[in-house]
């Protein structure tokens, strides 16, 4: 992983010379096992409390009429599938589902296409290559909400730099209502999300490209595989496992996105950028209908887990190869 340069301390380190009377091996296999589990116990407890419990609790809440009243009375009557029926039956559901699909697919395609193009570009040797590549990571490291803020300002209809530039170039007379028009807002949000995802895609795809043995290209060029042909017959087949990982992770991360949409549009205008994630947030933390929010969260979880399992399978195959 992080280079093997740190194998410095050897037999002279203090712990090695510190002798103890009894050997821990004498404690027997049972005690040994308990000690070993103690190392991992805090993590297991934490995961149970902060991942296991929320999943269980969320599932339970989705079958209850859980509202602010519950906090005072402690009562959350069981309602069966009523929350799901309400949520799925509402006219908003198909909108959020379509938005989530468009947002995810649009973001992934954009990030991946630009990502692989830049990764291939950075394979070339040229001065400043390394510096440029690490500076490219900046958008990925900034707090998402800070990025949302600057994009909201840049996309401002009247004084934003994007519309001002378009007007100077006479490409638009009045300025595009990026975040105010229901027909444009989703496209604007997807654009911002593509911008955010490019560094991650470049980094992973670039390191995948680096792992392809140079000899393959040398052998290929003898057989006349250069340019597009070498990409088609050497790069792409060898990069496939990494590509699958990038795409699946991209989907899972994009489904979770909340910061950008809340920061840029808050799900509006007219719900044109409302996704499953923002809808779950609005139901729980704006309308305080936690039961309904939990139902949408669960639908989101099921979709995410579906892709997680695809990821695990793909990943395992990638590791096996």
């Amino acid at each position: 992983m992080t280079s093997a340069t740190t194998v410095a301390p050897t037999a002279s380190s203090p712990a090695v010379t510190a002798r103890r009377g009894e050997s821990p091996r004498r404690r027997g296999r049972g005690g040994e096992r308990v000690v070993q589990w103690l190392f991992i116990a805090p993590a297991v407890v934490y995961i149970a409390l902060f991942f296991g419990y929320p999943i269980v609790q969320n599932t339970l809440m989705s079958f209850q009429d859980y509202t602010t009243k519950t906090f005072f009375t402690g009562e959350a009557p069981w309602v069966g599938f009523a929350n799901y029926a309400t949520v799925i039956g509402s006219s908003l559901f198909s909108t959020t589902l379509i938005n989530t699909g468009l947002f995810t697919v649009g973001s992934i395609i954009g990030q991946f296409v630009v990502g692989i193009a830049l990764a291939l570009f950075f394979r070339k040797k040229f001065p400043l290559n390394g510096v440029l590549r690490s500076l490219l990571l900046v958008p990925w490291l900034l707090p998402l909400i800070a990025s949302s803020a600057v994009w909201k300002w840049m996309l401002d209809q009247d004084s934003g730099v994007i519309n001002q530039s378009l007007q100077v170039l006479h490409l638009t007379a009045k300025g595009v209502p990026w975040l105010n028009d229901p027909n444009v807002a989703l496209i604007a949000v997807i654009m911002v999300n593509i911008w955010l995802g490019i560094p991650f895609n470049v980094t992973i795809l670039y390191s995948g490209l680096q792992d392809i043995p140079q000899e393959l290209y040398e052998a290929g060029s003898l057989d006349g595989a250069t340019g597009w042909k070498s990409f088609r017959y050497i790069t792409w087949p060898n990069l496939r496992p990494v590509v699958s990982v990038v795409l699946v992770l991209g989907v899972v991360y994009t489904l979770k996105v909340l910061d950008i949409i809340l920061g840029l549009t808050g799900g509006g205008p007219a719900n044109s950028t409302e996704t499953l994630a923002t809808n779950a947030y609005h139901l729980s933390f704006v309308d305080f209908t936690f039961g309904a929010g939990a139902a949408v969260s669960n639908i989101l979880i099921i979709i995410s887990l579906l892709f997680s399992f695809i990821y695990l399978r793909v990943n395992r195959r990638a590791v096996d190869e």
Partner: peptide, 24 residues
Amino acid sequence: IVLIALLIAQMIPGIVIANALYTA
């Protein structure tokens, strides 16, 4: 199993955790 749990944990949407944690 612990490793798979960790991989899956990374993929659970934060809003799901927040929803349940808020009540707790």
